[in-house]
Design a binder for these strands. Sequence first.
DNA 1: TACTTTTATACAAGTACTTACCCCAAAGTA
DNA 2: TACTTTGGGGTAAGTACTTGTATAAAAGTA
Lengths: 121, 121
Amino acid sequence: MTAIKENSTLNENRKSSQASCPVSFVMNKIGGHWKPIILYHLLSGTKRYSELKKLIPAITEKMLIQHLKQMQEDNLVIREAQNVVPPHVTYSLSKEGEQLRIVLDAMVEWAFAQDFKIDEN
Amino acid sequence: MTAIKENSTLNENRKSSQASCPVSFVMNKIGGHWKPIILYHLLSGTKRYSELKKLIPAITEKMLIQHLKQMQEDNLVIREAQNVVPPHVTYSLSKEGEQLRIVLDAMVEWAFAQDFKIDEN
DNA sequence: TACTTTTATACAAGTACTTACCCCAAAGTA
DNA sequence: TACTTTGGGGTAAGTACTTGTATAAAAGTA
């Protein structure tokens, strides 16, 4: 799933900055454009894969599943699958993921303090 | 400075998600690996360009100047230059940048609530 | 004269991230 | 039989992000 070159300068830099900067540590977990959006939607409760897809129309399935998987590995979200056909899989926030609420809320507040306006389209 | 293709799907997606998700709006301003680190260091006060470079040894000058410039355009940081040679330039947080303190603090708290440990090297 | 200092800029090359498109399972339904 | 449903996997190509290296100005210093 998208191989990463272990010894690239980029990757080394990433690791070292992550080690010395807590903010960078967080960004490595929830950075990128889709993760925070996914987390944001999970804040309101457990969702099925297909529900997330509907809530975030612009995301490709590839991206959705990739980020869910990464966040699952980072213990931010919990994946639960029922062994049925067609599949039934739900995603929810883990305890650690749930604790991100404070961070995400702070972001939302800041956004609105700037001249951010919701544009429902 | 690093041209961006205006009509790429990526860019369109970015804009639309930014418009409907406040968290994404924030990530577009402080996302990436270096911006939060730079902001973090500016939280403790005005810094010269060269001071920032010393505080963040791993960053290349290119990245430092590029991100400072972007954040300046986003009104997060203020650049003040004295017209002397050699140049003397300082960077500080704007009001909006200063307001990010809450967000950054929340991140720091979360990081330490996970098993994050500072590694000074 | 030659080198240092400070704050940059420009271009090429490497790396990561994102999209686009095609494929699959197995049960239920038309 | 053929199609739908749900939750994915795989590959290639496009786009963005980062690094690396070279270059500059103008005054001060060795």
